[in-house]
């Protein structure tokens, strides 16, 4: 019962944070609130027996994510400019989708129902086998590393992909080098007759023109 009260309280808190996030225009505040949102969800995860998830959410969702946002904020305007023009369309889509989902959850087994299909199929075998066959008490770890190890490999690849992307898009060193490289190329080009080829842009110069125009 206590857990239910905690649950209700935490979820209400989430709603409150979410509404504030929508309504706040100052991005630093928004980011901090979104961190708080993640932490509160982590608390909910603990309450729902998902301690591993809670730990990850606190570390990754609330921690790394917030750090990333804050780091990015160093380079971009701190305030959101008011713009309301798409509220109606967005509202219609969200209310429509929300209504459908509400209808659907009414037909789901209620929270914690031991007879729910999720507790009857697949999962019992994990709980039964994990201890005897693999000798690791934490079933989540077992499943993550063995039964669904391929998901974990995929997850690693996703992280690698994102890292690759951030590196390609941002890596400061690469970009300054690219400017130099391009200068060198241009110098070389003047010697060579072939000039009708597109080359990579130097974002710095593009930025400057854009800024001065703005």
């Amino acid at each position: 019962m206590v857990s239910l009260v905690i649950d209700i309280f935490l979820l209400a808190l989430l709603v409150l944070i979410a509404v504030m996030v929508v309504r706040t225009g100052r991005l630093y505040a928004v980011i901090v609130m979104s961190g708080a949102y993640s932490l509160t969800s982590a608390a909910i995860f603990v309450n729902l027996d998902a301690v591993d998830v809670a730990f990850t959410e606190a570390a990754v969702g609330a921690g790394i994510s917030t750090v990333l946002f804050l780091a990015a904020m160093a380079y971009i305007p701190a305030d959101e400019k008011p713009s309301q023009n798409r509220n109606f369309l967005a509202g219609v889509i969200c209310i429509g989708a929300g209504a459908l989902l509400l209808l659907a959850v009414m037909d789901l087994p209620s929270l914690g129902d031991a007879m729910a299909p999720v507790h009857q199929h697949v999962a019992p075998r994990y709980l039964a086998e994990s201890g005897s066959a693999l000798h690791i008490p934490n079933v989540v770890t077992t499943v993550l590393a063995s039964y669904r190890g391929f998901d974990t490999l995929g997850e690693t690849i996703v992280v690698f992909t994102a890292g690759l992307g951030v590196l390609m898009l941002l890596a400061g060193a690469t970009r300054t080098n690219r400017v130099k490289a391009d200068n060198r190329k241009t110098a070389a080009k003047t010697a060579k007759p072939k000039t009708n080829k597109p080359k990579t842009a130097k974002p710095k110069s593009a930025t400057k023109t854009a800024r001065t125009k703005a």
Partner: peptide, 8 residues
């Protein structure tokens, strides 16, 4: 949702 009603 499908997982919730089938467990798989």
């Amino acid at each position: 949702f499908i997982y919730a009603i089938t467990g798989t």
